[in-house]
Computed example of a mutant assay.
Amino acid sequence: MLSITRSFRFEAAHRLCLPHLTTEENQTIFGPCARIHGHSYRLEVTLAGVPDIHGWIMNFSELKEIVHRHVLSEYDHACLNELPDYRAQLPTAENMAKTIFFRLKPHLEGSHFHLLRICLYETENAWATWEANHAPCP
């Protein structure tokens, strides 16, 4: 099995806070992340499969268009807390990686390839990964 990965960048703001807690309680749990702040995210999308007759799993241009249409057009320069994806869950790197995986999965399944992994880098030193072998999303 062969895999390909395409990297993307986007800017977004978020705040980690639970609405049923006080400001002080949120700051105790989430520290500085309880305040609105931004990140320069790096998103890696990995497909796995068998190359087609042209020798590729998917044209990188096509992959770029799909990711832009289904993720980046909504996430880039957004306040993530305001997006429908994060009204019922915090926009942590972990939740974002899982959510992006399931946003892209229906668009990145073909006869000879599938979406293998999403890696979302919140900083160069901190990231979350969601892989296809995880349990199905609730």
Rank of each mutant, 00 (worst) to 15 (best):
I57D: 11
W56P: 07
T28N: 14
V67P: 09
A12E: 10
F8S: 03
W56M: 15
N26C: 10
I100L: 05
C33R: 12
S3E: 15
C119Q: 14
L83W: 05
N81M: 07
S73I: 01
R9S: 11
R6T: 11
L120C: 06
E131C: 12
N95M: 09
H39S: 04
L72V: 04
E65F: 00
A93W: 01
E25L: 05
E122A: 04
R42M: 02
H107E: 13
N125W: 00
T28C: 05
H114I: 09
M58E: 12
N26Q: 08
C137V: 07
Q27C: 03
L63H: 07
V71F: 03
Y121H: 15
F113S: 11
D85F: 03
I100D: 09
I53C: 11
M96I: 10
L16S: 09
C137K: 07
L43H: 03
L83V: 08
E94L: 05
T5K: 06
P51D: 06
A34Q: 11
S73Y: 02
E124V: 02
V67M: 02
Q27T: 08
N133L: 12
T46P: 13
R69Q: 15
G110S: 06
E65V: 12
F102S: 08
M96V: 06
L115V: 11
A48V: 07
C79H: 14
A88C: 13
D52L: 04
N26H: 07
D76L: 03
T23N: 12
R6N: 12
Q89E: 13
F8T: 01
S111T: 14
E124A: 06
H70G: 05
M96G: 10
F101N: 08
E94Y: 04
F10R: 05
L115H: 08
F60W: 04
S61V: 15
E124G: 07
V45G: 04
L80M: 13
A13K: 03
I4P: 12
H107P: 15
T46Y: 01
C33T: 14
H20F: 12
Y41G: 02
D52R: 09
L18F: 10
G49S: 10
H77T: 03
I118S: 05
V45R: 02
N59L: 05
L104H: 10
E109L: 12
C17H: 14
T92G: 09
P136F: 00
A135M: 13
V67K: 02
R87D: 06
P91V: 03
N59F: 01
C119N: 13
E74N: 14
C17L: 11
E131Y: 01
F113E: 09
Y121M: 04
S73L: 06
E122G: 07
H114Y: 14
R15F: 01
R42Y: 00
A12M: 07
H114E: 14
D76N: 12
R69P: 07
H37C: 06
C119P: 00
K98A: 15
S61W: 00
P19Q: 09
P91K: 03
T92C: 04
F113I: 07
F10T: 05
P106C: 00
F102Q: 08
F102I: 04
I57Y: 07
E44C: 10
L104G: 10
H39E: 01
N81W: 02
P138C: 00
R103A: 09
P138Y: 00
G49K: 06
F60Y: 06
I66Y: 01
C17S: 15
K98T: 13
F113W: 10
K64V: 02
